[in-house]
């Protein structure tokens, strides 16, 4: 697909193998243009999380390995960097299921995000205020243990924590997981805000195709470790197949289940 502007992140035909035997990604390529939001869509086990972890290099800890292909960030190869190095480069991942430090307070959680930065206390204070400006709720809960805050607040803490590292790109894994629809909208509003005001690029993995396509600029659809479709988010949202398979809107007459299955299988095979 052709992308306008320079891409900040380029993933070239990567293959990921877990435990030396389980082939999870079978040649995934994608592009994130600078300052845009790109959504990575697909069902459970399609390889969304693995793709994100391959970029942030958290795979190693799970005995996963990128065996083929390359990953470039701002034109530099990053596939051999450790997570701390990547964070210094400006790529940070917000993991699925929030992963707050439960026994640290919300504010301490945020401060850990600034671990890799060597700056003055005053500057960190300023960043903290900036995060609180985006997430006013966190300011109220700043001194409570993160483990005792609600799911939405934990998600905000996790995003805020990533923000403290001054990233130019955030890999956001399933921000809507386990949140009420209203909260999902709120989180995505903030993502859009961050994207526009702080010029942070996003690569976000989502199950909630509907919301994701509304906020993203571009989208990739993964199936079984392969990209099966990509395009502008607006185009994808109106695509008949996407509508049928991911948005649950069928066009016209009801199809027999047998046909649908067949059709889908063919699609997958073609990709």
């Amino acid at each position: 697909m052709s992308v306008q502007g320079n891409s900040i992140l380029t993933v070239n035909n990567i293959e990921v193998i877990y435990n030396h035997v389980i082939l999870v990604l079978k040649g995934v390529s994608l592009d994130v243009p600078e300052g845009k939001i790109v959504a990575l869509l697909g069902a459970n086990g399609a390889g969304k999380t693995t793709t994100l972890k391959a970029v942030s290099n958290l795979l190693r800890a799970e005995r996963g390995d990128v065996t083929k292909g390359s990953i470039e960030f701002k034109g530099k190869r990053v596939d051999k960097m450790t997570p701390p190095e990547l964070v210094k480069q400006g790529v940070i991942q917000v993991m699925e299921g929030r992963h707050c430090f439960a026994h640290l307070t919300v504010e301490e959680n945020l401060l850990t995000g600034a671990y890799t930065r060597k700056v003055s206390r005053a500057e960190i204070r300023r960043d903290l205020e900036r995060v609180y400006a985006y997430f006013p709720r966190l300011k109220e809960r700043r001194n409570s243990q993160a483990g005792y805050t609600s799911g939405g607040e934990q998600q905000m803490t996790a995003i805020g924590r990533a923000l403290m590292a001054h990233p130019s790109m955030i890999l956001l894994d399933e921000p809507s997981m386990g949140l009420a629809p209203q909260l999902v909208e709120e989180i995505f509003e903030i993502v859009r805000d961050l994207n526009q005001k702080e010029k942070v690029s996003f690569l976000l993995a989502e199950q909630n195709t509907n919301v994701a396509l509304r906020y993203a600029d571009f989208g990739y659809i993964l199936e079984n470790g392969r990209v099966v479709m990509d395009g502008k988010a607006a185009d994808l949202a109106t695509n008949e197949d996407v509508k049928e398979f991911y948005l649950g809107i069928s066009s016209g007459a009801r199809k027999s289940f047998r046909d649908a299955k067949h059709y889908r299988r063919r699609k997958r095979w073609l990709a």
Binding site: A61, F101, H103, L104
Partner: peptide
């Protein structure tokens, strides 16, 4: 703080760049 973070959740600690 980083120590306590690691104790709480290795993976998350790694994801925010704590070595």
């Amino acid at each position: 703080r980083a120590l306590r973070a690691v104790a709480d959740d290795h993976q998350a600690a790694m994801s925010v760049g704590i070595p």
